[in-house]
């Protein structure tokens, strides 16, 4: 199984992104890249867009397509994009929501961030921008996602990610400083 997981956040729908990832060209690209599943978390008010663009199809181009509105925790879905057992490393496409960026980076799945032009949030944009500069994520417009999936066959951002000095292994120390131990 190789999953492409698309998440738009719980609070708003991102119709353009849903339309794009369900377009025949995009589905074909995914199939060419040996993806087997496409799962879309379409957000509040996104079910209509999802069903109309998916056209009631459960599968196309050999891809199994699924969708749901939202869940309190997406951990389970995100973990399905990691490499374990017969599961191959997949791909996450996300609106620029901080929660999903952080969750995706923690599990080390390649991430394409697509900021929603209708919803501008200053500090979210700042974060997406700096992560793009430091090559942790790939930022993209709705129209460009397909070319990104084509161009970067594997989107191996995780190798850089593994060796980055900013990630701390253990951080028990800073709490001891404030406890005032005798030794």
């Amino acid at each position: 199984m190789k999953l492409c997981f698309v998440t738009v956040g719980a609070t708003a729908s991102f119709e353009k992104l849903i339309e794009q990832v369900l377009s025949p060209q995009f589905l074909e690209t995914l199939a060419e890249r040996r993806y087997t599943h496409l799962l879309i978390q379409y957000g509040k008010g996104g079910s209509e867009a999802f069903s109309s663009f998916a056209n009631g199809k459960q599968s196309a181009h050999g891809l199994t397509i699924g969708g749901f509105e939202s869940k309190p925790s997406l951990d389970e879905e995100l973990l399905m994009t990691t490499k374990r057992g017969d599961q191959e490393k997949g791909l996450i496409i996300s609106h620029a929501g901080t929660g999903s960026i952080l969750a995706a980076m923690r599990i080390g799945t390649p991430l394409i961030v697509v900021p929603n032009p209708d919803l501008a949030d200053n500090h979210q944009e700042e974060l997406a921008q700096i992560l793009q500069e430091q090559k942790y994520v790939v930022s993209s417009s709705v129209q460009e996602i397909r070319t990104l999936v084509v161009a970067r066959a594997e989107l191996q951002k995780t190798q850089i990610f593994d060796s980055h000095p900013e990630i701390q292994d253990e951080h028990a120390g800073f709490m001891s400083d404030d406890l005032g131990f005798l030794d």
């Binding site: 901080t98 952080l102 500090h123 979210q124 700042e126 974060l127 700096i130 800073f174 709490m175 404030d178 406890l179």
Partner: peptide, 14 residues
């Protein structure tokens, strides 16, 4: 009652 605060990872410049 000592306080340790850590700022959100999402806060980059401000």
């Amino acid at each position: 009652l000592r306080i340790i605060h850590f700022e959100s990872w999402a806060r980059v410049k401000k």
